[in-house]
Design a protein around this nucleic acid. Structure first.
Length: 648
RNA sequence: GCCGACGUAGCUCAGGGGUAGAGCGUUUCCUUGGUAAGGAAAAGGUCACGAGUUCAAUUCUCGUCGUUGGCUCCA
């Protein structure tokens, strides 16, 4: 007998070799019908895996994340089977589950698979699924496994197997299909009732652009048709929040082919929104002891040779700017830090002067790959809310923590609660990607980890994601479609101070090297605003809204009074417009609703008589008639609630 | 940069080898209206650009540019 501990803490005895499915049955038949996977001692196992020892068992259904993963991974097998049947000769590679669904990478071996083929593949998959074929794992020896795929002429699987150790290699069979697989399946294909192939894309084998390009098919599946329908509807809703669509509709920004790829143009409403965000952060930074600085948009090539940026990125960047004089080379500024280092170097410093915190909304230009450009989230010209803190090594921890506070304040004020903190460290196996000594890197990395710990951040560590000069703490936020973007970033840097020979005089009367913190709470204004648009669906906090109120006159007769209201609102610093067109009230309200205007002020005979406005909120709530002053109070109270001061 | 899809009016999109359509928006006229579309008329397009096939190309083919979904990259 073995003792199985269930999630509720209860311990039950079962025969040795009982499977999770046996155990599910012993609890209830209903549960057993829905169990698709299981976790034994934190490892995902099959529902038919015999359990041989005591342990904790979690039975998983499609509602559990791990259950979904098993479900989707199993569907990937099904996709592979369908493709193999429809396109004999394709070479299968890998087919994992992902956050939302699964994909399979195949080498089509010269055959063309396109989106047009999806319906046929989906049909085949469902047809195969209906056979209720069991997924069955069995171990194979390395020799056997290699033999199997060599016969099939599949170099990809052979490569995968060669990197595995004998004894840990398993195949998974279902129906007449066999695939190399480490496990995590649902009991049988019959659970898969709804399948949708989402898109097709090129992907490099093993993610290396020097390797062959494979065809990747993305898909998603569900136990019920209804769930698929709901998922697709959710996707449609998300698309409505796309910042590229809303940015155009709300006249915030535009792109022009004539101006150039990835070079955003800010229209008046968007520029004003940006301005408000800048002012918001400038106020907070002033309270936090930052000093504004300004540096030019270009700098001598030599500057970026000193920093190392040119050696690292020069080839793939905008090329140098020609001058009438021979031998002069200037570059568009890709980073503000070299300039700020020279600002620090403009005078001599004592340890008593540190930290120096230099802040600049600096516009930088980077030649991003054309395929990578994406609305405002990935552009070639953008403005960083950049600052560099020059401090003594002893001040580093404190300064770093203060920056975390500032970033959290910014995110909190703008409603970004669902961020991921990511500590990006260097890839120690690839030292040529980085500059500076091991000692400096270790100091910088431990400073970040300590600060993140002390601030109680939940963070994940990613090796190999550091900047070339130092490790980072990044704050990542997802867009409407679930794609993750880096917004805020804080970086510790011992290396640029060395390269720029930055110094201060210590209490010991000797010269010392300061440490630098690079930081940007927004990251870039462009990307931040893009994500803000997607999170709010264009319904920004009132203090950011381009248009806070609009006056809708019931007829043109009330033009004079409406204009008076408009000027009163202006006196109260409320951004308002006046719609005096000869349209019906229904139409004006509809348009204001579509426009996302937070407050509609209706003006007719009664309002003129009483010197009031009738207030309708976006969404339909009727606040009734009130004086302009009362309305202004409501607006200001709401703004005060939304935006608060950053205190150090 | 790589693989795939797409590019028709200001916007959203339909169409299709014989030089174009809808809705919304715009303009004008009628209507002067009380909480999500009042009515009518008009203007508006080298069908992204270039080449090829064809009697004829916006439609088919190729190329370029752009957009887009991924991959790679991201100081």
């Amino acid at each position: 007998m073995i003792n199985i501990t269930l999630p509720d803490g209860s311990v039950k005895q079962f025969d040795k070799g009982s499977t999770p499915m046996n155990i599910a049955f012993s609890i209830s038949a209903g549960l057993a019908r829905n169990v698709i996977s299981a976790k034994f001692n934190d490892n995902v196992v099959e529902t038919i895996t015999p359990l041989e020892e005591d342990g904790n068992l979690v039975l998983l259904t499609f509602k559990d994340d791990d259950g979904k993963q098993a479900f989707w991974h199993s569907t990937a097998h099904l996709l592979a089977q369908a493709i193999t049947k429809l396109y004999p000769g394709v070479n299968l590679t890998i087919g994992p589950s992902i956050e939302k669904g699964f994909y399979y990478d195949v080498d089509p071996n010269g055959q063309a698979i396109s989106e047009n083929d999806f319906p046929e593949i989906e049909k085949k998959m469902l047809e195969l699924a209906r056979g209720k074929h069991d997924f069955q794992m069995h171990p194979v020896s390395k020799t056997e496994a290699l033999e199997y795929y060599k016969t099939k002429n599949n170099p990809y699987k052979v490569e995968l197997i060669e990197n595995l150790t004998d004894g840990e290699i398993t195949f998974c069979d279902h129906d007449d299909f066999t695939d190399l697989c480490r496990g995590g399946h649902i009991p049988n294909t019959g659970f898969i009732k709804a399948v949708k192939l989402m898109n097709i894309a090129g992907a490099y084998w093993r993610g290396d652009e020097n390797n062959a390009q494979l065809t990747r098919i993305y898909g998603i599946s569900f136990p019920k048709q209804k769930e698929l329908k709901e998922y697709l509807e959710l996707l449609e809703e998300a698309k409505k929040r796309d910042h590229r669509k809303l940015g155009k509709e709300m006249k915030l920004f535009a792109f022009s082919q004539k101006v150039g790829l990835g070079l955003p143009l800010w229209l008046p409403k968007g520029a004003a929104l940006r301005d408000r965000l800048e002012k918001f952060l400038k106020d907070a930074q002033e309270n936090a002891g930052y000093q504004p600085v300004v540096s030019p948009h270009i700098g001598q090539k030599e500057l970026y040779m000193t920093s190392g940026h040119f050696q690292k990125y020069g080839e793939d960047s905008f090329q140098s700017i020609k001058t009438p004089q021979d031998g002069e080379e200037y570059l568009l500024k890709p980073m503000n830090c070299p300039h700020h280092c020279e600002i620090y170097n403009a005078q001599t410093w004592s340890y008593r002067d540190l930290p120096q915190r230099y802040a600049e909304f600096g516009t930088v230009y980077r030649y991003e790959q054309s395929g990578e450009l994406h609305g405002l989230t990935r552009v070639r010209g953008f403005t960083q809310d950049d600052a560099h803190i020059f401090c003594t090594p002893a001040q580093l921890d404190e300064e770093f923590k203060k920056v975390i506070d500032l970033v959290l304040y910014v995110f909190g004020s703008l409603g970004f609660e669902n961020f991921t903190a990511q500590v990006s460290l260097r890839d120690t196996e690839n030292p040529s990607k980085y500059i500076g000594s091991d000692e400096n890197w270790e100091k910088a990395e431990s400073a970040i980890l300590n600060a993140a710990e002390e601030k109680g951040l939940t963070y994940k560590i990613v090796k190999g994601e550091a900047a070339f000069y130092g490790p980072k703490l990044d704050f990542m936020v997802k867009d409407a479609l679930g794609r993750q973007w880096q917004l805020g970033t804080i970086q510790v840097d011992y290396n640029l101070p060395e390269r720029f020979e930055l110094e201060y005089k210590g209490s010991d009367n000797e010269m010392h090297r300061p440490v630098m913190i690079h930081r940007a709470p927004f990251g870039s204004l462009e990307r931040f605003i893009a994500i803000l648009i997607e999170h709010t669906g264009g319904n920004f906090p009132l203090w950011l809204m381009p248009e806070q109120a609009t006056i809708l006159s019931i007829s043109e007769k009330y033009e004079n009074y409406s204009k008076k209201v408009l000027s009163l609102l202006k006196k109260h610093e409320i951004r308002a417009t006046f719609d005096n067109r000869g349209e019906t009230m229904g139409k004006k309200i509809r348009e204001a609703e579509m426009n996302k205007t937070p407050y509609m002020l209706i003006v007719g005979e009664s309002e003129v008589e009483n010197e009031t406005v009738s207030v309708r909120k976006h969404g339909g709530e009727d606040l009734g008639q009130m004086s302009i002053t009362s309305f202004a109070e409501i607006i200001n109270a709401q703004i005060d609630k939304e935006i608060y001061k950053f205190e150090v």
